[in-house]
Computed example of a mutant assay.
Amino acid sequence: MQLARAAYFKADWQTAFYYLENAHVLGQPSTRRHTLSHWWMLKVAIKRRDVREWLGQTVRILASLLFSRLWVPVGNTGGANVSAIKPMPIRPELNQYLE
């Protein structure tokens, strides 16, 4: 999240979103962290004026609040460009944190 926020405040939306995807994967087991990653993804979507992402993140924020403790699709990066229920391969740079 720290790297994502730094990129966000530099208006580097692409890098910020990449780090937010990583934060999403790592934060999924925690309702607070999971929801926070979606909140920041929404903020990036607003800055980018990306309506699809904006709508997708709004739905995902609600879903993260309701379902984080029940089930999450492991490895899912959390963006509106992927199915919210699709498990995905974990990025190699994140493996060390999940082992």
Rank of each mutant, 00 (worst) to 15 (best):
R91S: 07
L36I: 13
L66D: 00
Y19T: 00
R52S: 11
I61P: 01
A4C: 08
I61F: 00
L55V: 13
K47H: 12
N76S: 13
I61L: 01
N95D: 15
L66F: 07
R33M: 11
Y8N: 03
P29L: 05
V59A: 08
D50Q: 09
L55G: 06
R33L: 13
Y8I: 04
P92A: 08
W39C: 13
N95Q: 14
E99K: 12
Q96A: 14
T77Q: 15
W13V: 14
K86V: 12
E53L: 13
V82K: 04
I46Q: 10
G75P: 05
E53R: 05
W40P: 02
A45S: 09
E99D: 07
K47N: 15
P29V: 01
N76D: 07
P92V: 08
F9V: 11
Q14A: 14
I85R: 11
R33E: 06
T77P: 12
S37P: 06
R60E: 01
A80R: 01
R69L: 12
F67C: 15
L70M: 14
Y19K: 02
A11N: 15
T15E: 14
T31W: 09
V72R: 09
A63P: 01
A45P: 03
L20M: 07
P89R: 09
R33Q: 12
V25Y: 06
A4T: 03
F17W: 11
N76F: 09
M88D: 00
V74N: 14
H24M: 05
Q14C: 10
R60G: 00
E53C: 02
A16E: 06
K43Y: 10
R48H: 13
R69N: 09
Q57L: 04
W71I: 09
V82L: 07
P87Y: 08
P73Y: 03
P29A: 04
R5K: 13
Y19W: 15
G78W: 01
V82H: 03
W71T: 06
Y19H: 12
V74S: 08
Y18C: 15
R60H: 02
K47R: 15
W39A: 12
L65H: 04
G78D: 03
R33P: 01
G56H: 00
P87N: 09
S64M: 01
S64C: 05
I61H: 00
K43I: 11
S30P: 07
L94C: 00
R91I: 04
